[in-house]
Design a binder for these strands. Sequence first.
DNA 1: CCGGTTTCTGAAAGCGGTTTCATTATATGC
DNA 2: GCATATAATGAAACCGCTTTCAGAAACCGG
Lengths: 376, 376
Amino acid sequence: MKNTATVQITTIHDVAKRAGVATATVSRVLNNTAPVSDSTRKIVQTAIDELNFVPSPNARKLSWGKTFTIACIVPFFTRPSFVERLRGIVGVFEDSDYDLIVYNVESAHRRAQYFNEVPRPDRCDGVIVVSMTPNDNDVNALKRFNLPVVLVDSHHPQFHSISEDSEEGAAKAVNHLIELGHNKIAFIGGPLKDTLNFEATSSARRLKGYKQALQNANIAFKDDYVCVDNNFAIGSKNGNTVKAFTLQLMHSNHPPTAIFAASDFQAMGVMQAARSVGLRVPEDLSVVGYDDIELAEHLSLTTINQSLRLSGERGATLLLETLSILSNESKKENISLSHQSFIDDYAEKVIHEKVPVDLVLRASTAPLLDRQHIVT
Amino acid sequence: MKNTATVQITTIHDVAKRAGVATATVSRVLNNTAPVSDSTRKIVQTAIDELNFVPSPNARKLSWGKTFTIACIVPFFTRPSFVERLRGIVGVFEDSDYDLIVYNVESAHRRAQYFNEVPRPDRCDGVIVVSMTPNDNDVNALKRFNLPVVLVDSHHPQFHSISEDSEEGAAKAVNHLIELGHNKIAFIGGPLKDTLNFEATSSARRLKGYKQALQNANIAFKDDYVCVDNNFAIGSKNGNTVKAFTLQLMHSNHPPTAIFAASDFQAMGVMQAARSVGLRVPEDLSVVGYDDIELAEHLSLTTINQSLRLSGERGATLLLETLSILSNESKKENISLSHQSFIDDYAEKVIHEKVPVDLVLRASTAPLLDRQHIVT
DNA sequence: CCGGTTTCTGAAAGCGGTTTCATTATATGC
DNA sequence: GCATATAATGAAACCGCTTTCAGAAACCGG
């Protein structure tokens, strides 16, 4: 059951033979790892070029004791925002020596499986976890082999993380509406508890920001104005709950004049529902979303940009940096003591980076009109 | 510059020592590759369990001469439909022994690089190419080492492929409109030539299907009704061309009563543009999209479902099948001659599978009304 | 022109598995 | 009951590359 390819690949031995040197020498010119005389180097290089030799990644990995791969554990298709995040991550590793393997979590079972099996030094050199807060088991699994870990879009005291401040973002959204004169502002969001990790979801944090903003503006919080779609998940075919919520809100005795949705996808549902009953956006109803996914621009949706792509980029970069620091650390040589201690410090410190959240003004929000006052 | 992990991983030697056997024996119980007495098997198994031993993937790969990884070359973020396709692919490999590495093509440079560097037996056991028709160079690169290759969403005589019939799909869309009584049907699509591979794009094929359908219905083809956005690409910030096209069409002397867009994303632009000037969809304008991406359902967009997910699944499965056939072939033993020849046939034959294209009826299309007749 | 570095290079020992080959123990046949 | 096939196991080679170790060659000051 050996390899099925019929054409043999040239190995370092072929090169060595052709160049009339030992494989060690070939390896040395390959990696610049020890002095090689110009003459032999040239000969070897010629042989390499002529044979079109590329060293076997696997052999290299085994020999180096590194995998040169990064594992990315991500609820791939259940988050509307993963594309952009992943794009950021992929972009960083494209130009590095590392391969990226994406582990897609779509069930609690897979989640546990991946957290247990993937973070091993013989499988990857580092781990990026996206949009999942590690629970106790996960933490143990992640720490077992001291692999560098970066959390993107989540937070844990023991691991580096890149995250956004959902509360701040939500507050910005709501403040914007308040500044436009709205005070009947509803919230529509997804589930507040995550079934995969039993943590507060971004919806929960955005709801918190929403409440905070209202409070700061001395606007009374109304339970009726909060709608939570516990089944909401991109990919599930139940986008209708949002529409039902919207209609319910707008047909109530005190219909809101503005709705803040915890995601652009939900905001889209809101806009559609509103329009389906003849309400104009933004004239009759202002809508703010969250995420600033591609869609938002096409919908002219005012929303909160949470730098999705950037968060991926930063996460990947941070992991790369950690990796390089660790590898420098392991060859403690020629390094001044002060520099060494700097590095130690750096390696010890857990870094929590926040990515900016910004209001993106588009055409789905407008000042509260007098007419609306009358309607209410 | 060795591995940075500080905790050592247990190896097969540890297990062997603990069980008091040779590593060969451990390997044998691990792989069921030769008879082992029940007693020793039990001892070894215990040692494995106690030490929590998992064989190093890398060592295994090197030894087997296989990589146990599949390379997937895909224009990741420039196609609106990649998510679903990838989802299908990922789902298949999750339960297999293979890792999936996704190579994201976003420039001609990367494209060439990946096609040249990736399809080597020391990097992967098989290749899935998504949404790109290989050019001559690519074909050479792909065939160099006789690696199994499957094309998803493209076609080439020399490689297995899973694709949809864009012409048929487009014809179904247009026929639907014709059946509703429309005869002023415009087409809005993306570029007809692909800058990455200089091949006809799906837009081009859909345009062809559009023309065909018109012709079959004896409706004269009008150049004015065809709008091609040469800059269209998801991710580029120029979704406005579609809107401009739409407005231009609707303000012309003979505005169409229906528009067929070559993708759902573009259809969304059409709907928005139409509504922005007070036109109702579908009452004043029928719109049909293509792809049936998630969005379509939320937009209540009538569209053509081209089984995106399924295409990924089938492609991945086909590759897996090919792989298993090849590996069986390589151990030509205990196989009846007839079965062997069947396998040979199968391995020789290039398989071209079509995935179904179906009209999905939603609320963006309606019968042509008399009122519209008058308007024109 | 000699001892002592420094530079360059090859042989060989890993990396962590698998597999061949040889050997011993057991089973089977007559 | 002995020759021979078969089952079970260990030692060692191997996958393709890196790296240590040690020796040879070149360099250098006196």
